[in-house]
Amino acid sequence: MQTTASTAPIWYSTEQVREAVSPDDARRLIENALAGGFDPASDPDRTSKPAGSGELLLMPATIGDWSGIKVVSVAPENPEHGLPRIQATYLLMDSKTLSTQALLEGAMLTELRTPAMSAVAADHLAPAGPCTLMVFGTGPQAWGHIEAMSRIRPISQVLVSARNEQRIEDLVQQTKQFGLQARAAAPAEVAQAQIVVCATSAREPLFDGTLVQPGACVVAMGSHEPGARELDADLMGRSVVIVEDPATALREAGDVIQAIADGTLGRDGFSTVSQLVRGEVARSTQRPNVFKGTGMAWQDLVVAVGVHEHFASRA
């Protein structure tokens, strides 16, 4: 661990965060933390408090020599003012003194770590070989997941489904410029996909879960609220279900919580991504494979340390 005696923390901008840690780097950092024995269950609970026109979320974490906290603001009306709905700043500290060593632009951390976490799970859950990727949503996380999934599997085509036709077209064009075949798609075309990513703010299921083929991998990461879900109870009930941490899933993952309430999924009917990485559970070829992610503070910390150590090694 390298720390600095300076009283002024180093600032890492959006551009510097992305320069230091690629999507593939972020995936490896997260997988290495899990493979190295870190238990996501040790992560403190995310807290949320009303503030101004929205809410503030606090996400603390400690892993070994490093501690940190992400402060997230959610202001639903911001897009009307040309501002992001979600903004964030990350404080990185050394665990020994809890002195702030760096400040990082937090939204880019989220854009990196969320697809990276999904890609860790999907790399173990998706079929080998070329895959059709279907993405629900058109925001930064939709694009981030396209990029991340293209690093773990050859993507034969990308199907995009959302409500706004112009935003669909924009994402299709961005994907084509990245070198992948892409087009708009209807929700029912989920039946063609070997990898499905749900990156929306939907509160109700996005598609008929019976259409998902056995052996396919479905990633749902668009919500962390008990009252919101992107996947229906049928799909959750007939799938291998992987979560980051059981207690967090039972507290925040509406897809899990509502499937349990509907009677299709048991309270112990899922495994963890740590077990998946360690080879203690495996994908099924006879059932769909679902990863339900809520996003956890340790993921931000792992990537933030990666950014800081990248620049420290060049100093």
Rank of each mutant, 00 (worst) to 15 (best):
Q2I: 15
Q2W: 12
T3V: 09
T4C: 05
A5M: 09
T7V: 11
I10Y: 11
Y12V: 05
T14R: 11
T14C: 04
R18I: 04
A20N: 04
V21Q: 12
A26Y: 03
R27H: 13
R28I: 14
I30Q: 14
E31Q: 14
N32C: 07
N32D: 15
S42A: 15
D45N: 06
R46H: 12
T47I: 10
S48W: 14
P50I: 04
G52P: 07
G54R: 08
E55Y: 03
L56P: 09
M59R: 06
A61K: 03
A61W: 10
T62P: 11
G64Q: 15
W66V: 15
G68V: 02
G68R: 13
G68E: 10
K70C: 01
V72L: 13
V72N: 03
A75D: 15
P79T: 00
P84K: 03
R85I: 04
R85H: 08
I86T: 15
Y90K: 07
L92G: 04
D94V: 11
T97A: 13
T100Y: 05
T100R: 07
L104Y: 10
G106P: 00
A107Y: 09
A107C: 01
M108Q: 07
M108C: 08
R113Y: 13
P115T: 09
A119N: 11
H124F: 14
A128M: 13
A128T: 12
T132G: 01
T132E: 00
T132L: 01
T132C: 00
L133S: 00
M134W: 06
P140E: 12
P140W: 14
W143P: 00
G144W: 02
H145C: 00
I146M: 01
E147V: 15
A148Q: 07
M149N: 01
V160L: 10
S161I: 04
A162N: 06
R163Q: 02
E165F: 02
Q166L: 05
I168V: 15
E169N: 13
Q177S: 15
Q177A: 12
F178R: 14
Q181V: 15
E189S: 12
V190L: 06
C198P: 13
A199L: 00
T200V: 10
A202S: 15
D208V: 06
P214W: 09
G215I: 05
A216G: 08
A220N: 12
M221N: 08
G222C: 10
P226R: 02
P226Q: 01
E230H: 08
L231N: 06
A233T: 14
L235W: 04
M236N: 07
G237P: 08
G237N: 02
V240E: 14
E244G: 02
P246N: 01
E252V: 02
A253C: 01
A253R: 00
A253Y: 00
V256Q: 04
I257M: 09
I257E: 07
Q258D: 07
A261F: 02
G269T: 04
S271D: 13
A282Q: 11
A282N: 10
T285F: 10
V290H: 03
V290Q: 00
F291G: 00
F291A: 01
K292D: 10
G295P: 03
W298I: 04
L301T: 14
V303R: 08
H310Q: 10
S313K: 15
S313V: 03
A315M: 13
